[in-house]
Measured scan of single mutants.
Amino acid sequence: KELVLVLYDYQEKSPREVTVKKGDILTLLNSTNKDAWKVEVDDRQGFIPAAYLKKL
């Protein structure tokens, strides 16, 4: 599985998104959309803007 590093805090703005903190390391589920990547956070799945993430 692929991991990503969170570069900036992000507060979810819709039910399809998830809230993350800078420095979190998350499982990347889908990065086919260049604008928003799907990740898993504490058994929740949701989207975060790709600009907030860096592949490890």
Score class of each variant (00 low, 15 high):
14 S>W: 09
4 V>L: 03
16 R>M: 14
50 A>R: 11
23 G>V: 02
8 Y>M: 14
37 W>L: 02
45 Q>L: 07
3 L>I: 08
15 P>T: 09
27 T>K: 13
36 A>W: 15
56 L>K: 02
20 V>G: 04
14 S>K: 07
25 I>F: 03
14 S>V: 05
20 V>Q: 00
29 L>P: 00
46 G>C: 14
37 W>D: 00
14 S>A: 09
47 F>T: 08
51 A>G: 12
46 G>I: 15
11 Q>G: 07
53 L>N: 00
18 V>T: 03
55 K>T: 07
41 V>A: 09
19 T>C: 07
13 K>N: 10
56 L>W: 07
35 D>S: 10
36 A>R: 14
31 S>G: 10
36 A>E: 15
16 R>N: 15
9 D>W: 04
47 F>P: 01
15 P>Q: 11
16 R>T: 14
36 A>M: 15
34 K>E: 12
2 E>G: 11
52 Y>D: 03
43 D>C: 13
8 Y>L: 10
16 R>H: 14
54 K>V: 13
13 K>H: 08
26 L>D: 01
43 D>G: 15
49 P>G: 03
10 Y>L: 02
23 G>E: 02
22 K>N: 03
4 V>W: 04
25 I>Y: 04
30 N>W: 06
8 Y>V: 11
7 L>N: 01
30 N>R: 05
33 N>Y: 10
10 Y>F: 06
9 D>H: 05
1 K>P: 12
34 K>G: 11
8 Y>S: 09
13 K>G: 08
30 N>H: 07
32 T>G: 10
52 Y>T: 05
23 G>T: 03
12 E>M: 15
20 V>Y: 09
9 D>Q: 02
36 A>L: 15
3 L>E: 06
53 L>I: 04
30 N>A: 10
29 L>E: 02
46 G>R: 05
38 K>C: 15
2 E>H: 13
18 V>P: 02
15 P>R: 08
54 K>E: 13
14 S>H: 12
54 K>L: 13
46 G>W: 12
46 G>A: 12
30 N>F: 06
11 Q>S: 12
17 E>H: 09
56 L>A: 03
14 S>M: 07
50 A>M: 07
9 D>G: 05
21 K>R: 12
53 L>K: 00
50 A>D: 04
20 V>M: 02
37 W>E: 00
26 L>V: 13
34 K>D: 12
47 F>I: 06
32 T>H: 12
24 D>F: 06
3 L>K: 11
5 L>E: 09
35 D>I: 11
32 T>N: 12
40 E>P: 00
8 Y>F: 13
30 N>Q: 09
4 V>C: 11
12 E>T: 11
4 V>S: 00
42 D>F: 10
12 E>H: 08
5 L>F: 06
52 Y>W: 07
55 K>A: 06
54 K>H: 11
11 Q>E: 13
31 S>K: 05
22 K>R: 12
38 K>D: 03
27 T>E: 06
11 Q>C: 12
13 K>D: 06
15 P>K: 09
24 D>R: 09
17 E>A: 07
50 A>H: 06
15 P>M: 09
46 G>N: 04
53 L>R: 00
34 K>A: 13
37 W>C: 05
41 V>D: 04
41 V>G: 06
24 D>H: 06
11 Q>I: 14
5 L>S: 03
44 R>T: 07
23 G>I: 02
28 L>I: 03
33 N>S: 11
46 G>M: 15
21 K>M: 08
41 V>T: 13
4 V>M: 01
46 G>Y: 15
13 K>T: 13
48 I>N: 02
17 E>P: 09
27 T>G: 05
51 A>V: 13
53 L>A: 06
47 F>E: 07
22 K>A: 13
17 E>K: 05
14 S>P: 08
50 A>K: 08
29 L>D: 00
13 K>M: 11
35 D>G: 10
2 E>L: 12
47 F>Y: 14
49 P>K: 04
48 I>P: 02
56 L>F: 08
23 G>C: 08
11 Q>P: 04
10 Y>K: 00
